[in-house]
Amino acid sequence: MKRLALILIIYAAHAQAQTLAGSGPISGYDFMEPTTQQLQDDDFINPAFFLVDRGLALWDQPSPTNSKSCGICHQDIETDMYDVSRQYPKYDTKLSKFINLEMKINSEIVNKLDASPLAPGSEDLLALTSLIGLQSRGLPMASASNAETQPWIERGKTIYKTKRGQLNLSCADCHQDHWGDRLRGDTISQGQINAFPIFRLIWGEVGSLQRMFSWCMNAVRSEPYNNDADEYLALEAFLTKKAQGLAIETPGVRR
């Protein structure tokens, strides 16, 4: 018995080393403790899920100005919003702008509900983003490499590789050259974006992708960018490309 257990442990360690050594992208999930993974695995205990419920309530909430709701036009969330979050960030021909999902949701609120946009990072915007993101859960991350997106990806790559802040570190220094290494008690992941919005245990709440970007910039004592800044959209475009193929986990749980 003991011997079998030992062999299994060695086998498991070997299998893990192999996935880690592979060249494909690795989800932040694989770097979490089993207890954190379990929180994400079960929708009933996943602490990010209360926002999905909130999103469902908002979906059918009539606008105070024109009494329309998202649900009036998009009746079946599961089919209407299937595979939608995966298309972002993208160039929106109607808005003539490169936008992320949050910006699209806000444009729907402004243009279709005749209401005020939700503040970036606000609970309501996170709720709708999580609800829509959930409809793509399990699908592989995909990046459009069309003519409109390509320059954003290139720009994002430059931003990713630029050393910044008083500590003079780039995103790539940690997430590309040192993933798998220990930074204090944390193992650095590849900084993949396939689980956002995420419930982060150290935040004690759900946060947006841009909040994560700002958190990492603050960690190297660098000035973060404003919400929805071009720099953040470019980073998102580049990281979407980098994550290509990784299963979407929204809403994820991280340390």
């Binding site: 910044r164 802040g165 008083q166 973060p224």
Partner: peptide, 24 residues
């Protein structure tokens, strides 16, 4: 190098306001 410069303020990009002009 990935080692932060502990006593230099030169050639740094977008240092946060709180830390501008200061060394570690």
């Amino acid at each position: 190098t990935v080692m932060p410069p502990y006593f230099s303020t030169e050639n740094l990009f977008r240092v946060g306001q709180k830390w501008q002009g200061k060394t570690i």
